[in-house]
Design a protein around this nucleic acid. Structure first.
Lengths: 222, 222
DNA sequence: AAAATAGTGTCTCTAAGACAGTATCGT
DNA sequence: ACGATACTGTCTTAGAGACACTATTTT
């Protein structure tokens, strides 16, 4: 071929794992197992294994499974960060993903994951602060036009819980009446038989819902 | 380090260059200079040069300049296509970009670029059809909420030209009155002194406009 | 005056926001 | 009955679509 083979950069996959913890949107970080920045909490990531991973999504699944013990999680490609400066080892490409796990799914067990408020995650190694920022922007931006935020809830949820999730993600209060109207108009949910009673205080039982499709994107703004 | 060095994949950059030609949205293709698929028209792309490119955007600028003779063009990262199967040579990562060039900017000269209707570009090598499809979806999706389609026009344009561009991009007719109202409400444009007279037939002269900012994203739908 | 495109006014309808009101439970 | 949350109804307003109308030029 006319064009010779060129030196290849490092290629990794990094995952911004977001969840809800104590009512706040949080990122899961993992202490790095190797240099550089060994021991420092960072985004969940790892090398692409070209002999093992069929594609980048397979690498994401492998890394989530091996490093965080997680499976069956919603994730989506975010963007790719590629430059000579982002990694002290070499020219480096990070294919970044963002993933959402239901509230409480990370609690219990002896997971090495550390949860930090997404807005105040502190200084992270590499360009991970920038990647985190991009993930939050994506969630905010796409959140208003899709059911992606619902992926932060368990499969079955109440309308109030759904509203609370959107409020947390968007960072603004929403009117209850308008919210329900929109959700109903868009026909995103189906009713689950059975009722939920809040445990905390006495009150009226609530209808339970489930998403009709894993993720729906629409034209109207929530 | 605990994690050994891993074999690295090929990393390339591919650019979906879109422009308007004879009233249709077209992609610019370039015959491949090397195997595989030597001579076959494909997306404009090339290896990342880690000794030369500071980051992926620098690679895009270099490739657009060297292979297509273009500079100062609008482009934006699209997505990354990474798998073991997409390139017969090896496990391969393509960081894909989409770029818009003003109508007519490619005409004249002896450019090796071939323009094909974006909707009917024919069979392309690798997964380039899939990349092209993603670029069109992005342009359609983001187009309705941003001034990105205006990047298919020269710097100075008329309201009618702008409307025609949005109509072509979105693939639907827009009401003239509503269009002007929205564009004015959003305060995206500034008036350029001087008038344009259509050359073709006698008619009223037109106000000329220019974008206030290179790209504006808004909340309303055009 | 006619042709042609530029640009405006207005009516209707849908959806959003605000907010008050009603419903159904436990205690 | 009261507290608490679930859920509904209605008023007002902003923006979208449809469409008719006016404006300014060359021929």
């Amino acid at each position: 071929m006319a064009e010779a083979e060129f030196a290849r950069p490092i290629v990794t996959v990094d995952i911004v794992l977001l969840t809800l913890h104590e009512g706040r949107l949080c990122t899961a970080l993992l202490p790095r197992s190797a240099e550089p920045f060994a021991g420092v909490p960072a985004l969940i990531g790892g090398y692409l294994h070209i002999d093992e991973d069929a594609d980048a999504e397979a690498a994401v699944r492998r890394i989530l499974s091996v490093k965080a013990g997680l499976g069956g999680i919603f994730f989506e490609q975010l963007a790719t960060f590629a430059s000579a400066r982002r990694d002290p080892r070499d020219w480096s490409v990070s294919i970044a993903y963002f993933a959402l796990v239901p509230q409480g799914a990370l609690e219990g067990g002896t997971s090495p994951l550390e949860l930090r408020p997404a807005e105040a995650a502190g200084k992270l190694p590499f360009d991970h602060n920038e990647i985190l920022k991009a993930a939050l922007e994506r969630l905010r931006g796409k959140g208003a036009y899709s059911t992606i935020p619902a992926r932060l809830l368990p499969e079955i949820f109440t309308m109030s819980e759904l509203q609370a999730i959107y409020e947390t993600v968007m960072g603004e209060r929403l009117d209850q009446s308008a919210f329900r109207r929109k959700i109903n108009d868009l026909e995103l949910l189906e009713v689950v038989e059975g009722e939920k009673r809040q445990t905390e205080r006495a009150r009226r039982p609530t209808t339970l819902y489930r998403l009709k499709t894993p993720v729906a994107v629409f034209d109207r703004r929530i």
